[in-house]
Design a protein around this nucleic acid. Structure first.
Lengths: 193, 193
DNA sequence: CGTCTATTTGAATGTACTCAAAAGCGGTGG
DNA sequence: CCACCGCTTTTGAGTACATTCAAATAGACG
């Protein structure tokens, strides 16, 4: 298990001693997932939070008509889980699938709780993680409320230029909350104009 | 300054000793705001995070055409700030106004940082606060993407029955991302059907 | 090479918006 | 106390943004 990238991620916010680093890595489980496999399925217990070492994941949910909504993409160096269900140990509301062959460092809910107890510095780490997730999600809400689909698409490709290389248009459309047909129309218009 | 409600709020997640309680309350500033006054204006430095003791606040932003989008309502026992700009000490992107005569306990950025240093338990408190804010905002994103305006309105009045008593329809419309005219049409339809 | 899915295209439709005007409601001053 | 003012809410007609459905084309993968 190569934890170099993960430890660098952690060290952006807190400084770990060698002993703490060892304790931390002992709580992790390494996992790989082939493209198109599901790491989490709606209704299942959501028992882990995952750090993506390489590859790409996508979290999405299905509405009553079976329509997909992409909640987030998780590329290398991102953390992902169905946060509400992970924290509250409720059946998952979403699916998490690998959109590339991927490998992850996973932290079970049990080990997450242990980690926070044993190395309280991680409270700060996860506070910052949650802060960033919150402010990012709040910005997304504002953009959804105020911008047209075309404007949201333009912001998306500017904000996540690396993501568009790894995902399909259908997936982008479901992240933006529009149909693939309409995204296609937006792109056609851009290509002409 | 009556901090009973605030201390109860804190104690839902962490246990403070008498000494810690005193240290904490020493960092707070009590503030009142008359209805229709602004606690924060776009472009200003966002220097505080506020706990609402009584009354009601509303956070909103303006787009390029001057259209308002309500980001959140903050009723009694809620925390509110322009989180991104507070944490990163950037000029505010939003307005926070009192929609009732209100009183708040405020924590400046300086004291927020001091608090986390001096009483590390508060890392946990704010982690949980951020977690809840994140998962709430994520749910809102999903609802914006998958539901019609009518469905969003129905969920809103079910989820926040106490809020609708204190806010105007125009404000609800701007929270849901629709025009006041269209919200009026939704309500007419409900009243008939 | 064939199959499956993603993407494109176009026509018809629906959801929500804009604009304009009337009605309702709350607060303020005479 | 009432009249007026400003703002909110309602109503309706016309419009724009985005969807649905169907079919054709293009790409990816075994």
């Amino acid at each position: 298990m190569d934890t170099a990238l993960l430890l660098k991620n952690i060290n952006r916010h807190i400084q770990l001693t060698a002993d703490e680093t060892e304790k931390f890595t002992a709580l992790l489980h390494y996992k790989t997932a082939a493209k198109k496999t599901c790491l989490l399925t709606e209704g299942q217990a959501c028992q882990t939070i995952s750090y993506v070492c390489s590859g790409a994941l996508r979290a999405y949910c299905l509405d009553k008509d079976g329509k997909e909504s992409t909640i987030m993409f998780a590329m290398a160096d991102w953390w992902v889980t169905d946060m509400f269900c992970f924290l509250n140990q409720q059946p998952a509301m979403m699916f998490i699938e690998a959109i590339e062959d991927s490998c992850m460092c996973e932290l079970s809910k049990t080990n997450f709780d242990l980690l926070l107890q044993r190395i309280p510095k991680f409270e700060k780490f996860f506070r910052v993680l949650m802060q960033n997730a919150y402010t990012r999600e709040q910005l997304r809400t504002i953009e959804n409320l105020t911008l047209t689909a075309e404007e949201r698409y333009n912001r998306f490709i500017n904000k996540y230029p690396q993501v568009i290389k790894q995902v399909t248009q259908k997936q982008i459309a479901s992240y933006l909350g529009i149909t693939p047909e309409f995204l296609s129309a937006i792109r056609r218009k851009k290509a002409l104009g």
